[in-house]
Design a protein around this nucleic acid. Sequence first.
DNA 1: GCCGTTTTCGGCCCGACTGTTTTCAGTCG
Length: 562
Amino acid sequence: MRNQEVAALLSRMALLLEANGESRFKSAAYQKAARVVGGLADDVEGLARAGGLRELPGIGEGIAKNVEEYLATGRVEYLDRLERGVPEGAVALMAVPGIGPKTAFRLARDHGIRSVEVLRKELDSGGLRDALGKGASDRIRAEIETLQAGLGRVLLPEAEALAQDMVSYARSSGCTLEVAGSLRRGRETVGDIDLLSLDGRALEILGGYGNVARTLERGSRKGSYVLHNGLRVDLLVAERGGHGAAMMHFTGSREHNVAMRSLALGKGLRLNEYGLYEGGVRVAGETEEGVFSELGLQYIPPELREGRGEVEAAKDGHIPELVKGKDVRGDLQMHSRWSDGTAEIEAMATAAMEMGYEYVAITDHSFSARLAHGLSEERFKEQWKEVDGLNDRLAPFRVLKGVEAEVGGDGGLDFGREFLDEFDLVGVSMHQGYGQSAEKLTERAVRALSHPSVDYMCHPTNRLIGTRRGHMLDLRRVIAAARDSGVMLEIDAQPNRLDLDDVWSRKAAEEGVGMFIDSDAHSVDQLENVRFGVLTARRAWLEKKHVANTRGLKSLLRMLAR
DNA sequence: GCCGTTTTCGGCCCGACTGTTTTCAGTCG
């Protein structure tokens, strides 16, 4: 799939258009197209071949032609022309927050600054003061420091912990903060923390918080701060009557806000962060529910606010009843000390009982996962005796005999069919073969999924967010294979996996593939990670009926028997 | 460049913050 490559191309064109002084709307159109392609589940190349690019929202004749040219030749003539219109290095400078096209252009053309590194050196030695002014020089220098410290996006649990700490700190000063932004939408990674308060004192209070390294700016309604780890925090102060509108504005996403405001305009209304207005009169704004309702929309849960068709769905009454944490009745992937877990099976099972589950599956690795101390047939048979004993004592709670079976280089599994059928539940995983071609990997996956003993596929791409890209599988074929053989796909809820992700999980469910949400816990405390999987499922528009481990034990066993 | 329950032309989400700005441009979310 070349979707990300094409998205990057369109983003670059958007930047260059801006730098060339073209209409900002034209640049925004390219930016929107980049986001559309980047968030596409379908393969953009296949779509282009089928002549379907122009069907995509935000992609018309002009952009489609550029994309087609790029896919066919690897170049875009228009892009080359844009590059020639911009001084060398200007685009690189625009990576620094606070440097837009105008400033970048000026620095590159008039002062010969070609890179962020050179800019930093120049600023360090006191240069460019006359060109930028003192205030801007200082701020840009600070922004470069943050940029070069290199903290990108952080994982959801880390951002959650940082936000909670700020909320507690503010509360100890008698001030309430609420979490908004991508953190509230449950995105897998968070690039900054957005907070909302009804109390103007919050702006000053947060500036005095020990983990704040620097206040970037502070007005009467908004403030921006940088934490010691380099993460940015934005704070918005709302008034009571506009609380819901402010929450909505600050929760985003940007694409969602654009869709909401366009809809309001179409109804002769105006929506901003203070409320929904008809003429000069505020007709809603105190609550989010009120704003949605006044616009004739169903309530849209934060997880769906990504500009992926949710506003249209809300208009038609098609917002689904999303799966909830309490719907999950059991956890079907976890490990014990028998392989690479740290806890006894009993400890995992009793912790799961306390969480209100009816069942778990212990799914230790099969023998060719050597690093994870995978088990042989003999060892599994020993393990089952322990499981049988536990089931006698813990009934009606049930520990299912599972396995995370390694998929071999040719798509075969470690055990024969006869032995595999003795398990209650067989999952397959592809931990090996990073060097293989997409074609080969996909063949392996499809073969494993068509094995008659297999019930589900664990963390299908095997990605690790921020560190490992994951297998370049053709997920459309994997989903089709899962559908054809009645095999489930998993949302692995480890916060650095979340695999399948929201976009592909939605696709899988639309194709009629059943999903599991599992913790993949290797210790007792990791069982709680399931909630991150539930968030991903909600972002994938999944309902209870799409998630097979929301079934009770009997219903689950009936399903597995089929 | 895209798009249409106002429009195939004329709009495009909307407002806050900073600086050296005395009325607004640049940038951002």
